[in-house]
Amino acid sequence: GSLMYASIFGNVSAIIQRLYSGTARYHTQMLRVREFIRFHQIPNPLRQRLEEYFQHAWSYTNGIDMNAVLKGFPECLQADICLHLNRSLLQHCKPFRGATKGCLRALAMKFKTTHAPPGDTLVHAGDLLTALYFISRGSIEILRGDVVVAILGKNDIFGEPLNLYARPGKSNGDVRALTYCDLHKIHRDDLLEVLDMYPEFSDHFWSSLEITFNLRDTNMIPGSPGSTELEGGFSRQRKRKLSFRRRTDKDTEQPGEVSALGPGRAGAGPSSRGRPGGPWGESPSSGPSSPESSEDEGPGRSSSPLRLVPFSSPRPPGEPPGGEPLMEDCEKSSDTCNPLSGAFSGVSNIFSFWGDSRGRQYQELPRCPAPTPSLLNIPLSSPGRRPRGDVESRLDALQRQLNRLETRLSADMATVLQLLQRQMTLVPPAYSAVTTPGPGPTSTSPLLPVSPLPTLTLDSLSQVSQFMACEELPPGAPELPQEGPTRRLSLPGQLGALTSQPLHRHGSDPGS
């Protein structure tokens, strides 16, 4: 009898404990919600809404976190579960008819179910419309201010047509639940991603989709105040780019002037030289400038040598048109050559190039014969006009050509200096018209024969001689050997007369 009593008592207590286990969990969670309300000092109306929603959600799901349970299964099984949970929507909604099984599984994985109690606001006026909503159960109302403009029910759709707008718009009203509602919502990016994977279904979906109420604000059109608020930074940046392009296009129409201050000032006329910023005076940081632009901040801005204009002085008759350009485009679109090309026009420029290279940067340069637009006047290309890779490749080509020119210049200078040193070592320090008596009659020769300089066969020296023939050397430049009979510069000019005159010897006659 005691054994029977113990078994009955144990079973009854276990049954009672299981009955009250759900209630215990409910009270535990309710205590957490109330502690949250007390800690954050939530006001009474919002506090009442929180408690009511918790009670309804507990009775609806029995305190089970559906998302946590669903995430515990593998992905393939999750797709089947989501397809079952959203079967009513996918079967009865017209846009989803005719979709393949794979497309429906992908869509079912992207849908999220939302449960809303009465009085809950789903979308506020001015919120971004980031999702498309399908009503599965219940009814909602749409308000503009305090005026109800629409009441939607089961199988209705609200949001915005995503295929017509590249960016999400703003809501033009509040969406509030009238009863307990079940909503299926899919985010904008998720829907577009699935439709991109199934393009054959995309056309059918957009053609058959009928949005019951379009929440997009109709005033959000390009150029409206609301649109400016939504895309303020983007609009200002776009206007700045367009104004920069218009100014650079105007600059290219004036090829007669070359400016070292950047493309923003290349198009300024002579009357605007004294102004601080020219056409860019209202925004000094709008356009890029070269490193020399920092010198323009000092006094005497109108007389600054940074602004270059072609000189009108005539060229000498024998002067060549100019050196070879550094870039391939210089032959086609440049009416002034790079300062480095002028360094190779003569030997005198070679000796004085490194010492006063900055001073020569603004000297007169030889002109190319074609009066085409200036290379320095070409505006900086924006990322939309020329690819970045093209600019980098041009810079690399320019750097390689500069290296080759520097190597060639160093070799030419070394060769010229070597020839000058050899000339100085071969010439005796001094010569006299009267020579010392020699031991015999073989001493009648006034000077030792001097062998002429070897013929220069280097390509670089031939180019130097060509430049010497075309360029007029300055007075202080050293002379180079030329073709024809060679003669030492330090010898007297009348050596031929010395050989014809008898030598005057000093000596005593033994017979006297």
Rank of each mutant, 00 (worst) to 15 (best):
H204W: 07
P452Q: 10
K239Q: 10
P478E: 10
V194K: 01
Q501T: 04
P369T: 06
G169S: 07
L128R: 10
L426D: 03
Y362F: 15
L417E: 03
M220Y: 08
P452W: 04
E324F: 10
A150H: 01
M424V: 13
P255S: 11
V427H: 11
F244N: 12
L230F: 07
L164Y: 15
A411G: 07
P475H: 12
G440M: 07
E200F: 02
L183W: 01
L178C: 08
T442S: 14
D174M: 12
L395G: 06
G169L: 02
L129V: 09
P314N: 05
T435R: 10
P452K: 08
S432T: 11
T218G: 08
G269T: 11
P161M: 08
I140H: 01
L242S: 11
V194M: 03
L376E: 09
N403A: 04
E253L: 09
I151D: 01
S352L: 03
T179D: 04
F311H: 04
P222W: 06
D127Y: 01
E392K: 06
L376N: 09
V434C: 10
I142A: 02
G126S: 03
P437R: 11
A397N: 10
L419H: 11
T407H: 09
Q363V: 07
F244S: 10
C470I: 05
R386F: 13
L183A: 04
T425F: 11
L402F: 10
C181A: 06
R144H: 09
P452A: 10
P369N: 09
P441C: 08
R238W: 13
P379V: 03
I186E: 03
A433V: 08
G346N: 07
L242D: 09
D335F: 07
S304V: 10
N163G: 09
N338V: 10
P502S: 11
L129R: 02
S341Y: 11
T218P: 12
L230V: 11
N155F: 12
S224A: 11
T415Q: 06
S312A: 13
T455W: 05
F244C: 11
P299Y: 01
N163S: 12
E200S: 06
G159V: 02
S243C: 10
E297Y: 15
L409G: 04
S304G: 13
S465T: 08
D249N: 04
L473T: 07
F201T: 05
D356Q: 09
P316L: 15
Q361I: 08
P379D: 08
R240T: 11
I157Q: 01
Q361V: 11
G476Q: 13
G493Y: 11
R176Y: 03
L191V: 03
R408I: 08
T336S: 10
P502K: 12
G262M: 10
R404T: 04
M327R: 14
T455A: 08
E364Q: 09
H506Q: 07
L365S: 08
G298W: 08
D335G: 09
S443C: 09
N172S: 13
L420G: 05
L405A: 08
V194N: 01
R216T: 09
E295P: 09
I221M: 04
S312D: 09
P481S: 07
Q421E: 14
P379C: 05
H204Y: 09
S286Y: 15
D127F: 01
E200W: 01
